[in-house]
Design a protein around this nucleic acid. Structure first.
Lengths: 160, 160
DNA sequence: CCTTGACCTGAAGTCAGGTTTAGGTTCTAT
DNA sequence: ATAGAACCTAAACCTGACTTCAGGTCAAGG
């Protein structure tokens, strides 16, 4: 079975050696082999790194990823827990994607806004434009970006 | 013109008072008014908070957002810089969304993987399945999640 | 009057996720 | 067999984005 040194892993995954050691310290490679102190990485740890990256991007912290890796080391008794984790993280990622869609809408609206300001030499006109008067392609951006602002107007007072 | 106290802003935006003061300290509200030391927030700062949230999600740091807010305070001479910033951040957000798409593909592949493992009582079979043998709806997930792994096989040696 | 609640400040503390440092050990090629 | 490259550890340090703390001001109501 192919084995790799920490330096080879670092090159292959473009991750600093110090980070790989940090991950090991945090318990992200349970059962990592060593020969006379030197770490021997295998395809198992390579796959772990891919999963670490995935779970990190999905919003998990290192400590939670450690828990997952421990489940992996425990074997078949934890399949359901592992599947359920991926189900939860799917929802987390989808929510983050919705937030990014709104962010993107705001960004594109602002691009248009400043294009207008540049053309006019001032923001005075564009600032006054109501959604209904905006170009077809801009209005939906505005609506999405600012959607939680129509209704929420006076939610500051009496909500019990 | 409607003015708000820091407490009202905190309620309206669901942001801790300590964070609003921190943002002020970091220069995110240039030209914020005060009467005898007490901050008076207006629609201007409300809009600033929406933009702060947007720019933060797009990946900017507080210091960079401060620069943007200073441009806003400088007036019409900075419209182009502000537009260009939003153009750059659009690209940043799109890239993050692509990464999340890959993350999601990996997550959904893993869900399927563990479903199989649960059915079989072991990972032994599912681990062996080549992309070509995977169900129609799973293969594309696998391909997307692991796409940088077919070609990159031996990029460790000689790349000049 | 005097207490209570909402505001203020500067400085220190926290937390996650690494990175750097200092001092050693092991491998590999000549 | 020896130099240099690549590895090791523990512990300190770093950064960003807040949060908490200790102590103080100020306006309004009982």
């Amino acid at each position: 079975m192919q084995m790799y040194t920490i330096g080879q892993m670092s090159d292959m995954f473009q991750i600093p050696i110090s980070t790989l050691r940090y991950y090991d310290r945090e318990g992200l490679f349970p059962g990592l082999e060593r020969t006379s102190g030197i770490r021997k990485f295998s395809e198992k740890e390579a796959e772990a790194l891919r999963v670490i990256d995935c779970l990190k991007r999905s919003g998990l912290e290192i400590r939670e990823i450690k828990t997952f890796m421990e489940w992996c080391a425990e074997g078949s008794s934890t399949y359901k827990q592992r599947r359920d984790l991926f189900v939860r993280q799917e929802e987390a990622v989808r929510e983050e994607m919705r937030r990014l869609e709104k962010t993107l809408a705001m960004i594109r609206y602002k691009q248009w806004y400043y294009e207008q300001a540049i053309k006019d030499g001032t923001e005075d006109r564009v600032r006054q434009i109501a959604p209904e008067e905006m170009p077809e392609d801009i209005r939906p951006l505005y609506e999405l970006a600012f959607e939680d602002m129509k209704t929420d107007r006076k939610q500051t007072e009496k909500d019990s």
